[in-house]
Simulated scan of single mutants.
Amino acid sequence: MTPDLPRLAAVAAGMLVATLLPAGAAQCERVDHDGQGYVLCAVEAAQEPALRLFQDGADGAPLRTFANVRRTLGPDETLSFAMNAGMFHADYRPVGLLVVDGVELSPIVTGASRDNFGMLPNGVFCTGGAQPFQVIESRAFAEARPDCRLASQSGPMLVIDGDLHPRFLVDSDSRYIRNGVGVAPDGQTAWFAISNRPVTFHEFGRFFRDGLGVRDALYFDGSISRLYAPSVRRADFGRSMGPIIGLVEQDG
């Protein structure tokens, strides 16, 4: 049975929901909104320490694939889910801010540009700061410099304080498989989503705002968007990625 979005949104509001997944695993489910299908993975505040950003391997080279990410894990660790987590240059290095375990690996970029990343306002997904999860507009982030255990910058913002990005068009013909992240209003849940089929920015933004009730959401990427989620039998392959975010479960 396909889960309904009102029930899933209730999880973000703090209501308990039964799950058959192991303790510590992300709850990934297939959902529908306005005739479009998505896979949605929920990470709760208690799971924030298990969330990881992956960029380079021990040899200093970008990991690029879920298979390479899995090879970095310890013998008692399992990758519960993962997806690409931001835009990258031709060498697979991040375009904007990347913070891994409190260490800044790439600086924030606040200027506008013609690509999706520079379609201002763009934003930063931050974990482990004042709230477990936050999506913060990039210029506000650069001014405030909040503490983050993990942070990844991308753009554009999908939802900004409850409003869709002002440049999204209802009748746009630009459609891609897209992925991104939204944060519950109380900061206690992060929703990671990817569309099953090509969608517009407007459709994707409405999924977060209207379907999940989030007030802030960030676009990670399109066309190269990939998901690893064994709980829904997804292990996408193909094009290489830059930053990758995933939840790591401790076995046993």
Rank of each mutant, 00 (worst) to 15 (best):
R71Y: 01
I177L: 05
I194G: 10
V100F: 07
D186P: 07
F220A: 10
V214L: 04
A58L: 08
C28M: 06
S174M: 12
M241G: 09
D101Q: 14
R234S: 13
R215S: 11
G86C: 04
A18I: 04
P94K: 00
M83W: 08
A18R: 13
L227P: 11
L227N: 13
A12K: 09
G128S: 00
A67M: 05
P198Q: 11
F192H: 04
R114S: 01
R226Y: 07
G57A: 00
S231W: 09
L218N: 06
V183L: 07
G155Q: 03
P6I: 07
L16A: 11
V159E: 03
A13F: 11
P243N: 11
A45C: 08
V124Y: 00
N196D: 12
E137R: 11
D32P: 02
R197F: 10
Q55P: 06
A23K: 12
F117I: 03
P49C: 08
L5R: 15
A25C: 09
S195D: 05
G155H: 01
S152D: 07
R239C: 13
S195E: 02
S225L: 03
C28A: 13
Q55T: 05
V199D: 12
L227E: 11
R226Q: 12
V214W: 00
E137A: 07
P146A: 00
A42E: 13
M1A: 11
G60S: 06
F192R: 03
V43I: 07
G96W: 05
C126D: 01
P230E: 15
V95F: 04
D115F: 04
E29A: 10
R226W: 02
Y228F: 14
P62L: 10
E77P: 03
F192V: 05
C148L: 12
V109L: 15
P121Y: 01
L169A: 14
D221T: 13
G246C: 15
Y38V: 10
G205F: 04
S154G: 10
R233E: 15
C148H: 09
V232G: 04
T189I: 06
V69R: 02
A61C: 06
R197P: 01
S172D: 08
D59A: 10
F220K: 04
Q55V: 05
F168G: 13
G118S: 01
D216M: 00
G123Y: 01
V199F: 00
H89F: 08
P62G: 11
P107W: 08
D91I: 05
R70Q: 09
G60L: 06
A144H: 07
M157E: 07
Y92E: 14
R7F: 12
Y92P: 07
N68L: 08
G242D: 12
G37D: 13
Q153T: 15
A50Q: 15
E48T: 13
R114C: 03
R197C: 02
Y219L: 09
Q134W: 02
G123W: 03
F204L: 03
A235G: 10
G182D: 10
D163V: 01
M15H: 15
A10I: 10
D171M: 09
A112M: 05
E104Q: 02
V232T: 02
V31A: 12
